[in-house]
Amino acid sequence: MIFGIFGKKSLPLVVLFLVGLIFMPYVAPRFYIYLVSAMLVTGLLATSLNLVLGYGGMYQFHHAVFYGVGAYTTALMLTKTSLPTWVAFVSAPLVAAFFGLVIGLICARLSSLHFGMLQISLGSLLWVIVYRWYDFTGGDDGIHGISMPAVISGTTPAYYFILAITALCLLLMFIVIKSPFGRILQALRDNPERCAAIGVNVIRHRILALVVAALFAGVAGSLFVTLEGSVFPDLLFWTLSLEILIMCLLGGWFTFFGPMLGACLIISLRTFAGNYTEYLTLILGLMMMLTIFFLPKGVLGFVNDLFRTRFPGQSLEESSHAPDKISTKII
């Protein structure tokens, strides 16, 4: 079942890619190790968003909240308590999932655009609290210089830690998508009325999906702390949420690896174009417009379609479940 992530044709390529990732620190300069770590963390975040966005069809407008909650939980546990380190890492996803549950309970009965906007207001509330509560969260300065245990401090150990956890989380998310629960989620995206008619509890499934997505976003948050050693309120700000939405769209939100690819593309654009121009967001914005006009299924969705027309009956990535026509009905 695990091999089902990839079509048979692409399997050797993927194995090669994984081996490359494992041996990369031996050949690549430190900066690139850091860069790939950042891609993995952001990619994990975007993939967790896609769980509810692409597969669940929910308008998760403020996913970064759970990322920020995870990061702040780890950071606060490491700096304000003397609990063992693993507690900080285990509790981050749990706290994020708890926030997911609370926000889900409040939002889940609303229809799409209202759902997204209520989520933004709840998230903004949380952001304001983090931003202003100087005594506890450090306010707009954030918390810096969080020391990690020796096993995962330094660029290369942190890279291996992030790689392992990200791979594990991707695998788990894939299992979730292939499980009966994941199937129901996709059915809910395509036709909620029909699902309700055959006895699926729509709201409960949506809340559960949100909790699962929040859990993995929390993991990504604590990995961010491992990588950067600092947290700041921007992690919860709504522009970050829209940026990860853009990553999902750019990579292709009806594919499993699309968001990861989108994260890699945007982070490399940010890093390398940043050397040449001050007006980075201008380029990003224009690139987005072109994507929306010409590649509405994203890069990976486009490649997938191409592959399907070349080799009928096979697909590059078997997990892609793109409905032929994206629903235009909203309310």
Partner: peptide, 15 residues
């Protein structure tokens, strides 16, 4: 889709 429109207008805010 509305989500597309939202992201399209967001790219306008960036520009």
């Amino acid at each position: 889709d509305h989500l597309m429109m939202l992201l399209f207008t967001f790219s306008f805010t960036l520009v």
